[in-house]
Design a protein around this nucleic acid. Sequence first.
DNA 1: CAGGATCCGTTCTGATACTG
DNA 2: CAGTATCAGAACGGATCCTG
Lengths: 117, 117
Amino acid sequence: MKKKEKTCPEETTCSVDYAFKRIGGKYKGRILWYLHEHSILRYGELSRTMPDITTKMLTQTLRELEADNLIQRKVYHEVPPKVEYTLTEVGQELIPFIQYLKDWGDKQIEKEQVKTI
Amino acid sequence: MKKKEKTCPEETTCSVDYAFKRIGGKYKGRILWYLHEHSILRYGELSRTMPDITTKMLTQTLRELEADNLIQRKVYHEVPPKVEYTLTEVGQELIPFIQYLKDWGDKQIEKEQVKTI
DNA sequence: CAGGATCCGTTCTGATACTG
DNA sequence: CAGTATCAGAACGGATCCTG
C-alpha cells in the first residue's frame, strides 16, 4: 500500500534502529538472557522459565530470533518431540551488552526501592 | 482485572525486562542516540532529525523518556516557545550500550549486504 | 514553536482449543 | 512435547486539525 522505505533516509545511524528491531521485542531480551544463562534450553523449559508468555508468543518470538540468526533451533525427530534452543555466535555477541543493560536495570530498580521507602 | 505482578516471579533477572521497557520503544534508542550526539536538542531539531516520526509519537516518546528519567526537558517560557532536551545522568549511562548496539547493528548490516550481492 | 486532541486503521498480545 | 489455528481485545502508530 505505502512505502516503508523511508524509515531512515540514506546514510544515517539507523543501525541503532536496526538493532532494536532485532532484540527489542517484548520478550526477546529475556529469552536471549535465559539462553545465555542456561546455554541450552528446550521449549518447555523456556516456557516454564517465563510463565507470563503464552505459547503463541513464545513460538513467534523464537521464530523471529531464529530468522534473525540470534538463536539456533535444533529439532529431534522423536516421540515425544524435543526441540532445543541455543544462542548462535551472533546472538552471543549480544550478551555483554544485555549484561550491561541488566546491571543498569538492577541499579535503577534499587534506586526506586530506596525512594519508595 | 488480572495481576500483572508475575512478569518475573521473585528474585530473577527481570532487570533485563525492566531495562528493555525503558528503552525498547520504537524510537527511544534513536532519540537517546541523537541526544548523545548533539548534547542538546530542541523539539523541532529532533523532529527534523527523524522525519519519520510524527509529532504525536515524538511528544509521547519524549514524555516517556522523561518520566523514566532518561532525558531532561527544559522549557523556556517565552514567545515563541522553546524546549530543550538533554540526557540525564542516568540516560548517559545507557550510551555505551547503545554504542555497542549500534556497532553490532552496523556489522550485521554489512554482512547482509555482502550476502545480497 | 511546541505541542494537544481526535479519529482510526494496523499491529501486537493474549485466551482458548486443537494436533502430530 | 512442542507447537498450530482462530478469534478478539488492547496497544501502537499515523494523519489531520487545533492552540497557547
